[in-house]
Design a protein around this nucleic acid. Structure first.
Lengths: 174, 174
DNA sequence: ATAAACTTTCAATAATTTTTGAAAGTTTAA
DNA sequence: TTAAACTTTCAAAAATTATTGAAAGTTTAT
């Protein structure tokens, strides 16, 4: 009976990889990319493309593209071992860095383009007596303001030290 | 020439709906759902299923399911007009409420299940001398801590008043 | 009860996103 | 050079996700 109180490391790893992949896909990050990231996160040494393909049962092409994407996100790096031609990959293990990196990329790729459109839309002119115009203008202005605040907050977060960040925020949010 | 300095309200509406839909799909929210939400956000009156189908060129089935989902997310409500059988739909226009509602739902649907798994994985036992075990345990513990902090922060945000929230946070993030 | 007005369901279809894998490309060592 | 070792590309296929639309279901008025 006691047996079931413990989980094998191997089983735990699989569960972690699966959970990370699911979370990623729910937040617009490709499942495989999140899984490769998870695998490298819990791996003490750098892994080859070969090993990643094997462990996650994915094709060479998929592994290659996913690793390239992860490098583009600043989440993993290539490593070369002396006397070997193969490339090894390892993940930054600092969770605060990971959060910052993801925030930075998504801000750049998704938030900023939307802010640009919202700013354009703020300049629309029309009949101030028209309810359709008034409602449009107010919604756009409100969203623009919120998005701007989110942007500023992220900007500050990107510069922040982990301890400083959590210390300060948790003091405010008590 | 000056003509191009102004944008027609109709064009602006389309652009807004498109941008909101794109943002949604990048963050794991179905494009159509985000578009229907956008349409109702900028509409001064409640709209019928019929009108939504027409404006966005979507089918009755799609409109019906999407509207039901949006009600489930707490972003829109049904309205009945005296002497009419048709149902009308309108969106909460308060941007802070919208942000809170989305945060609340995603916390419940996605963050909490992951926290549950992470907590389970924290209990894994193994050989403290094994680098694979040590790396696994540390990564899980670190992520668990970060996720727990995010959860607490959201929890507080859900209770917060808009002015209080932005006032306080922006003072900290100066 | 009946029928008109309206809403919901869901199997089939369409659209989109992800993955494959073999061929092409590149680098290195001899 | 050449060839082995390794990486990248990308058109085709598979998997996933979203949409359609007609039929079934429900409600209301008479």
């Amino acid at each position: 009976m006691l047996l079931y109180l413990f989980m094998e490391l191997a089983a735990a790893k699989l569960k972690f990889i699966e959970a990370w992949g699911k979370l990623g896909s729910e937040w617009g990050i490709n499942r495989t990319m999140a899984q490769v990231h998870a695998l490298l996160l819990i791996s003490p040494e750098a892994l080859t493309t070969e090993e990643i393909m094997e462990t996650l049962s994915i094709s060479r092409g998929n592994a290659n593209m996913t690793l390239r994407d992860l490098i583009g996100w600043g989440l993993i790096e290539k490593q070369h071992k002396a006397g070997e031609r193969k490339e090894y990959f390892f993940a930054d293990k600092d969770v605060w860095n990971i959060a910052r990196q993801v925030a930075k990329e998504r801000k750049k790729r998704e938030l900023e383009p939307v802010l640009k459109v919202l700013n354009e839309l703020s300049t629309v002119t029309g009949d101030e007596k028209d309810p359709a115009f008034k409602t449009f203008k107010k919604s756009v202005a409100d969203i623009n303001k919120l998005a701007g605040n989110v942007d500023k907050t992220l900007e500050t977060m990107l510069k922040a030290e982990e301890s400083w960040f959590w210390g300060s925020v948790l003091k405010v949010f008590k």
